[in-house]
Design a protein around this nucleic acid. Structure first.
Lengths: 376, 376
DNA sequence: GGAGTATAGCAACGCTGTTGCGTAATAGAG
DNA sequence: CTCTATTACGCAACAGCGTTGCTATACTCC
């Protein structure tokens, strides 16, 4: 159903997500500030808070004295009331992280994958990783909301099918989400690595974080997009093939068939040992993206980039400052990924959190994942 | 307020928008099909339809016999129950169109603007155009939902301020929306021309139309983006500066300061009289956009493009078919603008319709424009 | 200790979509 | 023509959302 109707349940989930987003912020909060931020009446805030307390997601944590009158009750998120597992499927490794409700990483570890691994190999590694996790962390029992998987595309996020994982045989039209769901007994989300990565940034920055591009350089160049307050996946859930945008019409031929792709130019510069040139090429692509889509936040990530992060960051910042027509109202923030090598796996976990505890849209509410029951 | 709360009013408007979107489709419809398409219960559909009938937006139009049982009542949109005015502010002209609720153009005409016109000049032309419209079409009295204005950026859609209209003096930080609203006595929307244009396509194609790029070549090259079912304006409402994305890193210097922008390469080819080359350059940029953002529909528009529409369309189609890694699930539709030269003005009008009669999102519902009262 | 003030919650309410069920309108069988 | 099966559709009662009106509570200040 393309445009599902909204009922009272949507209202409840939406406003709960709104309040929970405020709770995810660093500081304890009181009812009045929630009412001011959301426009809900104080009475409605009370009801929402009562529901969240009942679910074990938040708890009172003190009083706030502010001159005359009864002191306001302060509330805080209980970050360990829910967890999510995130997995980053790379070419030779499976990285598994456990994050709490706030998006902080509780554990992170890497399992090797056999060369040219099959779906069966991957599922075995996944079940092993989850088994180890629940064994080492018994307090997560019954509190894991689901498992997110981030890997290279092309894949179909909506159907949970890997179309053709780049550079991997055995990976054509594999219904990975369904098979993982059966193997793990938990709700599973499947998404492109870069989209998962940008979700990590967005979830941690809170609901006011409206748009970002996660530029990732790691065996290929991709861009995860967060637009208008949600992940942008595109018409065929294939957005982010940023490395195969052309920067030099008469440039060298790329593996993808086009000439002068960002990726081929970038990789040639790297092969020459000329990292500054590689960085400038990437920067030119980022400026293109900023011009066409109007991005306010650029986040740099990926092993190959972070190795030379000063050079890349300087080049991107310089590119934006000198090449975008300047105006005081046109500001772009350039930062490094706050989670380093864990960002993809952590983002995959946060896609689970976002689906269950984020601010839903009417369309997403229809496919909402079932939520694990908390331990009583 | 960044993330406003949702109440019952949002629910009502959302579901009404959903049903109205079905009504906008060509054919008459019955209750059962609405229930199937939205997931609402038949009883809820009855209530929504009753509200829409009371507002004069739809009316029963017949019966549908289908074998046994009581025949179903058919309903249809009353296209002339509401109108919207759209204006396209170009460098020397003001184009004004009147559209009905379905998005069909009722009238269209062009007023010259003085060279290097001032805000006062423009407001005078606008009031004149609206006065002529209401005089010539008395049946629109009390049924005009508002006035949409599309013009070149940069401008701030949210604040309704023109930042710096390209190639126009007298246009720095002009609060055009507010001044037009005062002058015309109607709600006013201000947006970039390309964003207005893509809204025209989206409104006419219905709510299943999820994403599109309107590529416009007309004294500059821009792209209006419709992503995830709504207009994408970007972090600073400045998205669509597609003409200033670089396709040739060492190319000729562009007026914007960068080298090898799509626009400068394209315009040089046009100056050489080499339209096929110009079209191939544009196509390369479109493929970049498809790769990075994953667009499913490309719509070509703009006077300079439509003049050679066969060449441009062939080049863009060829570019997508040969340069995007092919797969049967990756399809991009390339079409010409269905409204020709009126597309920007018509789209500006449809932004008004979309705000009042479209499917709202919780965020947009908070700033919803006041709606003109229908004639009883 | 009393006055003033801000928080918090109970109870009633309005409005949404939902459910249960009765009524109307048709086609087809006898 | 009469009866039955079938489909459409609305009235009435209901559950659940945020809202409103009001009262109880707990603090500071005088």
């Amino acid at each position: 159903m393309r445009n599902p109707a909204a009922g009272l349940g949507f209202l409840r989930d939406y406003n709960e997500g709104l309040v929970l987003a405020i709770a995810r912020g660093a500081a304890p909060f009181d009812r009045a500030s929630v009412a001011a931020a959301t426009g809900l009446t104080p009475q409605a805030v009370s009801k929402v808070l009562a529901r969240l307390i009942k679910q074990g997601l938040i708890a009172p944590c003190g009083l706030k004295r502010q001159g005359a009158g009864k002191p306001a009750t302060l509330y805080e998120l209980l970050p360990t009331s829910r967890f999510a597992v995130g997995m980053h499927v790379a070419r030779r490794t499976l990285r598994t992280v456990l994050t709490d409700l706030r998006g902080d990483i509780a554990t992170s570890h890497v399992t090797p994958l056999p060369p040219d691994f099959t779906p069966r190999d991957l599922l075995d590694a996944m079940t092993g990783a989850v088994a180890r996790l629940t064994r080492d962390r018994p307090q997560t029992a019954g509190r894991i909301a689901g498992v997110g998987i981030g890997m290279v595309g092309p894949l179909d996020h909506a159907l949970g099918i890997v179309r053709d994982a780049h550079r991997l045989r055995h990976w054509h039209d594999v219904p990975l989400r369904e098979r993982a769901q059966d193997a793990l007994g938990l709700p599973v989300h499947l998404d492109k690595d870069v989209t998962a990565g940008v979700t990590a940034e967005a979830w941690r920055r809170g609901p006011a974080f409206d748009d970002a591009a996660l530029i990732m350089v790691e065996s290929g160049v991709g861009a995860g997009l967060w637009l208008d307050g949600r992940a942008h996946r595109g018409a065929h859930t294939n957005a982010g093939e940023f490395g195969h945008t052309v920067l030099q019409l008469d440039g060298p031929r790329c593996a993808c068939g086009r000439h002068g792709c960002l990726e081929v130019l970038h990789d040639l510069a790297v092969a020459d040992g000329d990292i500054p040139r590689a960085a400038r090429i990437l920067a030119a692509g980022v400026v293109n993206l900023v011009q066409a889509v109007d991005i306010g936040h650029v986040v740099l990530a990926g092993a190959d980039l972070l190795q030379h992060h000063r050079t890349y960051r300087a080049a991107v910042t310089a590119g934006i400052e000198t090449e975008v027509p300047r105006a005081d109202w046109l500001t772009v923030e350039v930062t490094l990924s706050s989670l380093g090598a864990d960002i993809i796996a952590a983002g995959a976990a946060m896609q689970i959190l976002d689906a269950s505890y984020g601010v839903p849209s009417p369309a997403s509410a229809a496919h909402a994942a079932p939520v694990a029951q908390p331990a009583p």
